[in-house]
């Protein structure tokens, strides 16, 4: 878990550096104050850089302290579940507009439920998937007039 404890502040430093460097690349304004749009992002990313470095130093100092929470929460199965959800989300985003709301939602919700809830409770899964998809579709597109694909 050390990797995460140290990795995060390093990631923060990287993020603030990226923002800082690209802040300098913001085009000069042709109207009003030429550097107007630069100051704020530069100032904030510099502040964040300093804070991230302090954060890193703090973490390095406390590196030997045991934090049960971290080792406790990262089980392989849980991470797998999150990865699956994200992949499903991306597939959902890709199919949303081509397959339409109802079909893609039924697929997304169905697969996720079957994966998480197991095949044994298939009846609950199917009923929840279909009825929930249908009710939300009806509620949003028909009652609230939201245009869904």
């Amino acid at each position: 878990m050390r990797i995460i404890k140290i990795g995060l502040p390093i990631l923060m430093i990287a993020v603030s550096l990226v923002f800082l460097i690209s802040s300098f690349q913001i085009p000069k304004a042709t109207l009003g104050s030429a550097n107007g749009p630069l100051y704020f992002p530069i100032g904030i990313s510099a502040l964040m850089l300093i804070l991230s470095v302090i954060y890193l130093v703090n973490e390095l100092r406390n590196i030997h302290e045991k934090e049960e929470k971290l080792t406790d929460v990262f089980s392989k199965r849980a991470i797998q579940l999150i990865v699956v959800t994200i992949i499903l989300g991306i597939i959902y985003a890709l199919t949303f507009e081509t397959l339409g709301f109802l079909i893609s939602t039924i697929l997304f919700l169905g697969v996720l439920l079957f994966y998480l809830n197991g095949w044994r409770k298939w009846l609950v899964n199917v009923i929840v998937t279909v009825s929930f998809s249908f009710i939300t579709w009806y509620g949003f597109s028909q009652l609230l007039g939201v245009s869904l694909p």
């Binding site: 923002f19 304004a29 109207l31 749009p37 704020f40 992002p41």
Partner: peptide
Amino acid sequence: CLGLLLSTIGIDPQTGVHRF
């Protein structure tokens, strides 16, 4: 800081410059 930086994404209203 992260929140403030995210808020600068987009067109800067005062000058019309695109940021990030």
